[in-house]
């Protein structure tokens, strides 16, 4: 396979988690895949399979890995503001208002410009009118919106999302999934989202990477050839869902 022209290239990625009192843990081994610019990739896997670690490594938050991660021709060594990260927990600073939380992550530009940037991004995630609210006054869904706004405000080319809707109730989750697609359409980011919710993956992704358990390996990469507006109850949707689900069914040995 020739990967040279790929936007994101992950090749022979291997991550060992060193532990003090136990043997070192091999989190994943020989992971290779490529992502095109503008693609929406979902990574699904069981809990503890290393999918979040894979995302952290790819975004540069965790630089202790073997193998290659090349984004736009550059090897990933540390976080970069061209890559936004939506954390699993909202991680908002409770002492700052919504607006200040988002503004905190901007470290360049002038005051006026940044103010405008924050305003635009809060509007985009549907938080207009909540600028001066404190995190404790927000619902889980709202807090997660701020988390997304914070990841987007530096206009990243790639957005990494680590189980962003995992802690939300089903209805809020569906609402935010829809909004995420709207955001993607407007901002044209490349997106990589980790989830254990197969339905979520089928709803959002262009391609789904299915990870198997410890050490994680790629079991399958599924193309989701569905129209842009996806009907969860449609036959095609359910077909793909079932296809992925079979990887996680309990097998008797």
């Amino acid at each position: 396979m020739d990967y040279q022209n790929e936007y994101i290239l992950v090749k022979d990625l291997r991550k060992i988690y060193a532990r003090k009192k136990h043997h070192d843990l091999l989190v994943f081994d020989s992971i290779s895949f490529a992502v095109e610019k503008g693609e929406f990739i979902c990574i699904v896997g069981g809990s503890g399979c290393g999918k979040s670690t894979l995302l952290r490594v790819m975004s540069g938050l965790d630089s202790d890995y073997e193998g290659d991660i090349i984004i736009d021709g550059e090897k990933v060594k540390k976080p970069d503001k061209r890559r936004g990260f939506v954390y699993q927990e909202h991680r908002l600073f409770p002492w700052m208002t919504v607006e200040k939380n988002v503004r905190f992550v901007i470290n360049d530009g002038n005051e006026e410009e940044n103010k405008k940037k924050v305003k635009e991004i809060l509007e985009l995630v549907g938080l207009k009118g909540f600028e001066s609210a404190y995190p404790k006054e927000l619902s889980g869904g709202m807090a997660q919106r701020v988390n997304i706004a914070r990841a987007l405000v530096n206009k990243p080319e790639i957005l990494f999302l680590d189980e962003p809707f995992g802690a939300l109730d089903a209805l809020t989750r569906i609402q935010l999934q829809k909004e995420l697609l709207v955001i993607r359409k407007k901002q044209k980011n490349t997106m990589l989202l980790v989830t254990h919710d197969i339905e979520e993956a089928v709803f959002l992704a262009d391609r789904i990477i299915v990870l198997g358990n410890r050490p994680a390996e790629i079991l399958d990469i599924v193309n989701v050839n569905l129209s842009e507006t996806r009907e969860r109850s449609s036959k095609e949707f359910q077909e793909i869902r079932k296809n992925i689900y079979k990887y996680f069914e309990y097998k008797e040995h």
């Binding site: 938050l61 976080p79 503001k81 990260f85 954390y87 927990e89 991680r91 600073f93 002492w95 700052m96 905190f104 992550v105 901007i106 470290n107 914070r150 530096n154």
Partner: peptide, 27 residues
């Protein structure tokens, strides 16, 4: 440390980190 990571991921300048994150968080 999760809150600190938010700041280090965007390479926040040291003084801003101390006055806007460290001191309020320890308040």
């Amino acid at each position: 440390p999760k809150i600190v990571e938010v700041s280090s991921a965007v390479e926040t300048p040291k003084m801003k980190y101390i006055f806007q994150l460290v001191i309020p968080a320890a308040m």
